[in-house]
Simulated assay, not measured.
Amino acid sequence: MTFLRSSITALMGLSLASTAMAAAVIAADPFDGTSRVLDGARRGTGWATAWSDRDQVNGRIVATKASDAPMSGKALRVQGNAATAATRQLRQTVSSNVLISFDIQFDAGRLNTNDLFGLWLGGVAGPTIGLRGNCGTGQGCTDDLFVRTGATGIGSTGVNITLGTTYSILGYLQKVDGSAVYNRFDLWVNPTEEDWTSLTGADITNFGISGVSAFRKIGVRTANLETNDAVLMDNLRIGLADPRPPALSPVAAPTTNPVPEPGTLALLGAALVALTASVRRRQH
């Protein structure tokens, strides 16, 4: 039994190490600092600079309510309009396929056509993921979450968001077909465990030449928000994808008996079969 336990432990360690190498979280911010303006906030990991919000009015870190789950404790609350409502620099430059995830909520006011809250990568005209009311068209469309690879074009998810409801979104930004710049952006809304592990079946995919081959700076852009409108964002994470990983682990409450991922289960099953056969041979 000692041999069996040590072999399984070694296999689990190998599997988890491979997963960690495949998808490394390089930056994260749970926005859990003291309630204050965002400008100068340094919480989180993987950042070279603090958040910059020069006008000091767009972003504040605020307490969340139980009804805001899966947001917990504190979140970023943004009001007003600016192309660079908030910006921050990563510790490292990203040039490979990348995963972006965060929670978002239209917290107050009224979501009108073309109301915009977008997280951009590399520049205001670069790849963007977030919220855009009614596809920005005003023609009966009620799709409110989107991705786009550049300043033009948009991929809307078909999700009509509800005031006060939190949505978890996962984006997968890629260079495909030998492109030197990012040219594909996938988006999942409230991704399942299968979505996280397979990175297939996206709710929407946007193709287009971004003009961005690498980035280090990220930022928040808002537009067309009225005086009483407010958007919440929480649990921001950015991870490298090399080239198609099991993905960042979804944010979830810890469990006392975590369930191994399918890949781990397969390895453990194979190990158990081989070891059982070996023990039987020895006994005979």
Rank of each mutant, 00 (worst) to 15 (best):
I204M: 04
A28V: 12
A28W: 09
G155R: 04
A75S: 14
S7K: 13
P70T: 04
S67E: 10
T34R: 11
T128K: 04
P246G: 09
V279C: 09
V62L: 01
Q92G: 07
A10E: 14
R110S: 13
V94G: 07
A83Q: 08
V259I: 12
G269M: 09
L14G: 05
V251I: 13
A69Y: 06
T113W: 01
L240I: 13
V94W: 10
T113P: 04
A48P: 08
L38Y: 11
S179H: 07
R110V: 11
G13E: 14
F117R: 00
S15R: 12
G211D: 06
V231S: 03
V259P: 01
A83P: 06
G33N: 09
R88D: 08
N257Y: 11
L275H: 15
R280P: 00
D103Q: 09
S210H: 09
F3T: 12
D39N: 15
A214P: 05
D107Y: 12
A23M: 13
C135Y: 14
K65D: 09
R110P: 00
N112P: 00
T49V: 03
V78H: 02
V62F: 02
N97K: 10
V231E: 03
D107I: 00
M1K: 11
T128W: 08
G46W: 07
G219W: 05
V159D: 12
V124G: 02
G178I: 11
L99F: 11
R184C: 00
G164I: 05
V37M: 00
T157P: 10
P243E: 11
C141P: 05
A75P: 08
N97P: 13
S156G: 08
V78N: 01
R5A: 15
N58I: 00
F215K: 02
D186F: 03
A253S: 14
F3N: 12
Q56W: 03
I8R: 09
A266E: 12
R5M: 15
G109W: 10
A266V: 14
R148C: 05
L163G: 02
F3L: 13
A202R: 07
G140W: 03
T256Y: 14
F106G: 03
G269Q: 13
S6F: 11
S15C: 15
I100W: 01
S278M: 15
L119C: 11
L119F: 14
I218E: 03
D39M: 05
N228C: 00
C141A: 08
D195W: 00
T137E: 10
D103M: 02
S278R: 14
A86T: 05
M233Y: 01
M1S: 13
F207C: 04
S168R: 14
I8Y: 02
D53T: 06
G136K: 05
I161S: 01
A151E: 10
L265V: 15
S179P: 12
V94D: 07
V220G: 01
L116T: 06
L116C: 00
S95A: 15
G164M: 05
T197M: 12
T142V: 07
I209Q: 14
A223G: 03
N235I: 03
F31R: 02
A85R: 03
P246Q: 08
R88V: 08
N228I: 03
